[in-house]
Amino acid sequence: MNSFIAFIMGPMVWISFIIFLGGLTIKLVGILKAVRQKEPYIYSYVTLKHSLRSIGAWMIPFFPRSARMSPVYYGISYLFHVLLFLVPLFLASHIVLINEAFQISWPALNDQVADWLTLGVIAALIFFAVRRVMVPEVKFLTGAMDYVLILLVMLPFLTGFLAYHQWIAYRWITVIHILSGELVLIIIPFSRFSHMLTAPLTRAYMGSEFGHVRQAKDW
């Protein structure tokens, strides 16, 4: 068992990050190539200024019009996305491991605060699932895979929460925690989660089309 844990705490972390970053890179190259083949004129008006302006505008809470039109969903979604990155990256235990591997470290979240924020992430995911069941327009567009993906993202947070409190089956919970975290990284490029890459690309395109060509706002 210890050698299995050594594997998932060592080489498997590297494998996961290589697939995650490599997969997104291949995807980016594929998108850029497809645009060049099918609609090369897009390159003639996409500018860095308009791209960044649009991405920036969409990052300001409640700034885009569509965000103000459904403030509850948007607010929860916004907070969820912030916490999704903030909690794992600033968790004290993760920083201990990174420090041992690379001799670098940064300020950590207080453990109690991180504990509550983790519950926040789980609550937001439950909200997303319930919304898919309750709101007819969303339900219509929802497939089994959407629930699987919600569960998959929830798993590392739920098992992380349980592991921190050491309530049950500590070793198994922690092994599932490590594995599910790695699995989420691995599937990002091959699933809906690739919007991590495509969302900013969409903003770059829309921002330039509206800002540069039509002289209008896209938020």
Binding site: V96, R171, T174
Partner: peptide, 22 residues
Amino acid sequence: AAYHKLCRDCHFDQGEGPVLCG
């Protein structure tokens, strides 16, 4: 790091003993 290296590495090497934080 000294504690973690001494304790955990031996448990990994021997295939026995605790290796996870908790």
